[in-house]
Simulated assay, not measured.
Amino acid sequence: MKFTFAEPQRAHNPAMFLSAGARKPNPEVPERIQRLLTGANEAGLSMIAAQDHGLTAVSAVHSPEYLEFLQTIYGQWQTINGASDEVIPNIHPNRRDFSYPTSPVGRAGYHMADTACPIAADTWNSAYWSAQTAIEAAKLVQNGEPAAYALCRPPGHHAYADMAGGFCFLNNSAIAAQILRESHDRVVILDVDLHHGNGTQGIFYHRADVMTVSIHVDPSVFYPFFWGYVSERGEGAGLGYNYNLPLARGSGNQEFLDALDLALDRIRAYRPGALVVALGLDASEHDPFGGFTVNEQGFTSIAQKCASLKLPTVIVQEGGYICNQLGGNLTHFLRGFGG
């Protein structure tokens, strides 16, 4: 298996985020890249540098209004007297069916779901190259590779078509799935991150050509709180094509694998032509978010079950934060998937 990567992803280095009202160091740091690179190399994967494929695939899932915002908001924010070093919203609308705000403060509130996705000078370029990394992996699979791993950072599955959130700006998994749709009538995104992939769900909620499946911590007690419930099944043409499997906080290997069996049954019934795995390593028992207790063998088993679908597969890196086991967890997953 090959993996894709782009060096500019290192530049985004957010200083902080707000958690339970407290200012804390942001855990989505460049060091994640080095640990994941080590994990991919230990698994024996060969690297391909991502090429610049432009915005065509990105704009297929994100609105032009939002893409323009991501590219310009930092410069506009810096014109505000006394503004923070990073763009962090301090107001959020309770509805979105109104005239589009012209103020940078209003636009930040409109396009940023929370305070966990600060935008600094290098954020857009890193997010852009994170998306290019996913595009490169999707094109490898589209061109005949059975599977490819995209080492994407910042992650993407909390990003909606026109809104950032939860460390995410561009939805890399959704972008990869949209590319695979060029070759396959039906594509499935299987999200195994600790957190619900609410942005991915939102992008495809009214569609039947991309089914979204997510295993995650019960959102009634965990981020993203407002999305990820069993009752969310899709709407319109997408009704029945969204499948959420929330688990109790503290769940470990067996609970996760049991839920994965249900997910795979639903995926097989859908009969997709290709698979995107939104890979979160934050389900680890050692991850600082402390939501699940999956161990290294658990990641091997998760990967083996995903591989049992025998579908062309793009594995897109989502969460997984700084702990001594981060690289090893990736190695176990990639080895499990490949062999």
Rank of each mutant, 00 (worst) to 15 (best):
R107V: 13
T79N: 09
M163N: 03
D52T: 06
G144A: 03
W124P: 03
E68Y: 09
G166M: 02
N143H: 13
I135D: 04
R96H: 12
S63L: 12
A131I: 06
A121Q: 07
L67F: 04
T102H: 14
A121S: 07
A137W: 04
A127M: 03
P118M: 10
Q76S: 09
H111P: 14
N172E: 02
I175Y: 10
R95V: 14
I119K: 04
H53V: 04
W77I: 03
S59A: 15
H158T: 02
F167Q: 01
A174W: 06
E136L: 05
A161K: 09
I91H: 10
T79W: 00
N172F: 00
Q78P: 04
H62V: 09
P104I: 08
G82C: 12
H158N: 03
S173A: 15
I73M: 09
Y160E: 04
I175E: 09
D114L: 08
I135Y: 01
A60H: 07
R153M: 05
E145R: 05
G144E: 01
F98V: 13
N94K: 15
T79M: 11
G54Y: 02
A131R: 05
A113Q: 11
A138D: 03
V58W: 06
E68C: 13
R107N: 14
R153L: 06
L67V: 12
E145M: 10
L140C: 15
T102Q: 15
T79F: 00
G166F: 01
F167A: 05
V87L: 10
P154S: 07
G109D: 09
N143C: 10
P155H: 06
S63T: 15
A161D: 04
